[in-house]
Design a protein around this nucleic acid. Sequence first.
RNA 1: AGCGGGAUAGGUUAGCAUGGUUAGACCGACGGGCUCAUAACCCGUAGAUCGAUGGUUCAAAUCCAUCUCCCGCUACCA
Length: 741
Amino acid sequence: MSGEHVLVCVAWPYANGPLHLGHVAGCYLPPDIQTRFEKAKGNKVLMVSGSDEHGTPITVTAETMGIQPQEVVDKYHKINLQALNDLGCSWEPNIDPRGSEFGGALFNRTTDPDHKEIVAKNFTKLMEAGLFEKKVMQQYYEVRKGGGRFLPDRYIEGECPTCGNQEARGDQCDACGVTYEAFELIKPRSKMNPEAEIQVKDTEHFFYRLDLFQNILEKHAQERQSVWKSNVKSMTKQWLDMGLRPRAVTRDLSWGIPLPLDGPDWDGKCIYVWFEAVQGYYTCAKLWAERYADTDSWEKWWKVSSEGKKPRHLYFLGKDNIPFHTIIWPAIILGLNHANRGLDSSTEPCLPTNGDLHLEDNVPAMEYLMLAGGQFSKSRKHAIWLPSFLEQFDPDTLRYYLSINMPENHDTDFNWSDFVERINSELIAAYGNFVHRVLTLGNRLPEGTGIHDFEDLSLCSAEMSKLELLHQEITASLDKHRYKEALRFSMNAAQLGNQMIQNATPWLFINDIEKEGAKESLAKLSFGWRLCRFLSITMQPFLPFSSQRLWNMLGEQGDCSLQDWSSAIDWSIDTKWSDQTPSPLFTRLDLSEIIQREENLVDISQDSQEGVEHTVKGSKKIKDGKKMTEGIKYIDFESFMDVELQVGKISAVKDHENADKLYVVSIDDGSDKGRTICAGLKEYYTPEMMVGMSIVFVANLKPRKLRGVMSEGMMLAADDGRGGVKLITVDGEIETGSRVR
RNA sequence: AGCGGGAUAGGUUAGCAUGGUUAGACCGACGGGCUCAUAACCCGUAGAUCGAUGGUUCAAAUCCAUCUCCCGCUACCA
């Protein structure tokens, strides 16, 4: 399988904010692992992606920040590319170190003028082949001085014509579920600019004739049944079963690629982002060839050769993106092939043959990574951002955790304690520690001897065949895009190493190499070097940074990622050694430190919750929030009397060891042992101020652990909402434990 | 709301298209061993009514029906 052309297509991140860990697990880490693996096997890999930089949400962001859309996308393109490179994703260098005939990578952007030009040409080509139709549709229009603008449905709300809900969206009401045409919504208003007058205007648009490709796409999906994952199969089937309809390819947009057409009818209209950005896979390959290789070389990755040899196309994306890549994008490719043949809509399109653009082979779409049980969300700020993560952690720790916990078959969850647990006990304790054992033991051998002096492969045949089997299994798993399984097999090799060392007890012999049994024991230690080398090569797609560190510590030269994949089990390679003192591959993580930082993040996200809600798509949560503030809700006397308030005296105040804002307060409540209450008063009181105060506390509040310390109640304090907080104190002396009412 | 996907030991999960040994793995817990190694390693034990209920079958985690919860798409946040 060596020498194959593999095109790795990576979903284009929207340049409207930084990437978070959900993006990484879903579509940025898996293609990098695959690319590294394919390269190690000797395949010629071209990896393409870039920033998706057009569309209304970006103009909205620009408006909010008071800058130009171009500045928004410049900023996030730079941040995201930097973060991906820092994560070790192979976007640099652009040319494969083995030469441009081996491919390379390009992380481009949709605002690239060359991208725009190719897209415009394709647009014209498809239009001239009769694959578009024109239709008039109705769209909301915000009237402004000196010209208004069209608004997408998601930026409109109004009164539902069916149930009267005041917060119905432009095309559908969340309260009763009814859908309607634009003009039916009562009193429409702009979410961004509620004062503006909203009209419904006719607007003419082009639609791509997806319906022409129904049969051929069904055939194509049929051919891919055996390789596609079940989620890809079923989602594609769903679309095909519903029947494909023409889909708009133009929009009333200010920020996008203008239509390559003259005439006032087409002013203010752009090519719809989905139709444009998805072509990036194609434009990017072309531009890569133009800039870094022979101009025509892109065809090796995109076209079925004249002899019928096909490149392999892999698309990496999140589950929400599946139909775009199994229906819409193939339909565009088929349309381009059709037009290139000089045919039009009167002829039935056919599957690619020699010289045509190739369709996707596999679409290993991932499910979602959740954050502590909830969905990552840009607008709700429930996220861990990749750039800030990489400022604090070794990228390989993230790569390990996300790989071993990859959402391959269903959603998986990221949480900090699990992250620390797995890094410390698996990556470090099993893998890192094994490597460190071998290297330090080897270093302690008597002066004048080296690990290679004790090599005796005839004593290690069991280990050799086990590694050979594991190598087969890792390879098979990666070929099937089963990353978790592959990494687990690699980890099994580390475990095998620990067992081998444990059984051989080489520490008993390193100071006395003549002792009975030394030969057998030290032969195993020596084989430990080969096992480390095996690990360095097979871990490299997953953990490129630490693999390279290990590679150097083993005394090997050059770039670990350029080693042949099968050389991991090449036992004829000479054992080498490095003179440098071995140092641990990874540093242990400390959960409490991380939790503390994490707490700050959570606080920030809660504070900023209110201000961002108007941009949240689903409005259900907002409604619930608003109901609670409507009117006064009375409680009856019994309910009030259920709350047991008592007087207490503060006897001691300590810092909570594991929290930023909390004190651990000891209170004399009249009982023998007193009680402990955690209180968030650090910003307002010093311990000295508090000790001795007579305060009022809730005595029958259900005890609860706060950051590890049991809190038995709650002290009353007044809060003006503007940062002023004062404890409620008692006027004069009264016995502690007295009931307050 | 409609459509699609998911739910398996305390945690993370494999197995499910083609029903058939004791439902496999990693982490954690517990017991023992080791002491070279980053509180690391090795051996062993316990822990799962396979989301709920009903059905098909000689046999169901696996197939069918209904329900619950989570996620996605429909509907410009991966």
